[in-house]
């Protein structure tokens, strides 16, 4: 149980929200930083809803992001944005639902590799489709300003956080916890493991789909290789490991840390940024398996 030990979720949320509001009021640089922060929070909370809860580590979450970006870019100026962004989420969720049964038949490292490969597969299929359509890239002229997109992204980050928080407390979440701990024992005490895994997998793709759509608008440019960049999947997992995927606070802490580090160092010295990030990742895996959020309740035993 996540009884109020240490820093409560509300305080972390307030901090992140303050940063984003600051981003809205203070010109383009901070707007972009805040947009990035909200994006990583939304993506990692969604990832955590499936991978954090069930222990099936997805290394291909970019597939939802890419599909969402494609839906918004493809329908740009045809379908209004208030409709195309939710559609991006629906498309990503439906795709996940479609592939869930075969994908979820494997566990452990096989699952990790399979999700990675699946994202690459979809990338190259869409690349061929786009080439066939004679479009190497799409320019999205007249996309909303970053200020507007930031609001949408903050909304998505908040929705993903609330969703994860709610799942943690629900019967559904208890079932996913049991699946992570021991799948055979879980089904033996009456948990419909396949149904729960499929639902969680599909649900965890919806918000990333919308995030991908918003980010396509943000760059006013769509190219398959860019939106299916595997680095996005890796970064999600990095944030989850550094922040901790045990509850809804972890991804926020991880995103704050990563975006902060990247803003301070990435332009000044990208090599040092990557070295530091690598060291932090190794350090967390070795010494802080529950991530930064684990520091908040070091003594907290079982959930």
């Amino acid at each position: 149980m996540i009884r109020a030990h240490g820093l409560p979720l509300a305080a972390i949320l307030a901090g992140a929200a303050a940063l984003m509001v600051f981003g809205l009021g203070s010109g383009s640089y901070w707007t972009i930083v805040a947009l990035n922060l909200a994006m990583w929070i939304a993506l990692t909370q969604s990832w955590s809803l499936f991978s954090g809860m069930t222990g099936y580590i997805s290394l291909g979450h970019v597939v939802a992001y890419g599909i969402g970006a494609y839906v918004v870019a493809f329908s740009f100026k045809i379908v209004p944005l208030w409709l195309s962004i939710p559609l991006a989420g629906v498309a990503a969720g439906l795709f996940a639902l479609m592939v869930a049964l075969p994908v979820l038949r494997v566990r452990g490292p096989y699952f990790v590799i399979l999700t990675f490969g699946l994202a690459e597969l979809v990338k190259y299929i869409l690349l061929n489709v786009e080439t066939g359509l004679g479009k190497s890239s799409r320019l999205l002229f007249g996309a909303p300003k970053p200020d507007t997109l930031l609001w949408i992204m903050v909304g998505l980050a908040a929705a993903a956080t609330v969703a994860l928080y709610a799942v943690h407390r629900s019967r559904f979440g208890r079932g996913l916890d049991a699946i992570r701990e021991d799948e055979t024992a879980a089904e033996t005490i009456g948990i419909p493991v396949v149904r729960l895994k499929v639902l969680a997998y599909a649900a965890s793709a919806v918000i990333p789909g919308m995030v991908g759509g918003v980010m396509a608008l943000r760059s006013t440019y769509f190219e398959v290789l860019q939106v299916f960049n595997p680095t996005i999947s890796f970064t999600i997992v990095t944030i989850a490991i550094i922040g901790g995927a045990g509850d809804a606070r972890g991804p926020i802490l991880g995103a704050l840390f990563l975006v902060g580090l990247s803003e301070v160092l990435q332009n000044a010295s990208p090599q040092i940024y990557l070295i530091l990030l690598g060291l932090c990742l190794i350090g967390c895996v070795l010494f802080l398996p529950t991530g930064l959020v684990g520091l908040l309740h070091r003594k907290g035993g079982a959930r």
């Binding site: 916890d177 049991a178 701990e181 024992a185």
Partner: peptide
Amino acid sequence: RPFPGLSVRRNVETAILY
């Protein structure tokens, strides 16, 4: 095959829920 990371109570609770 207990759920090792969950509390003893939560182990039984999950069985009751499902």
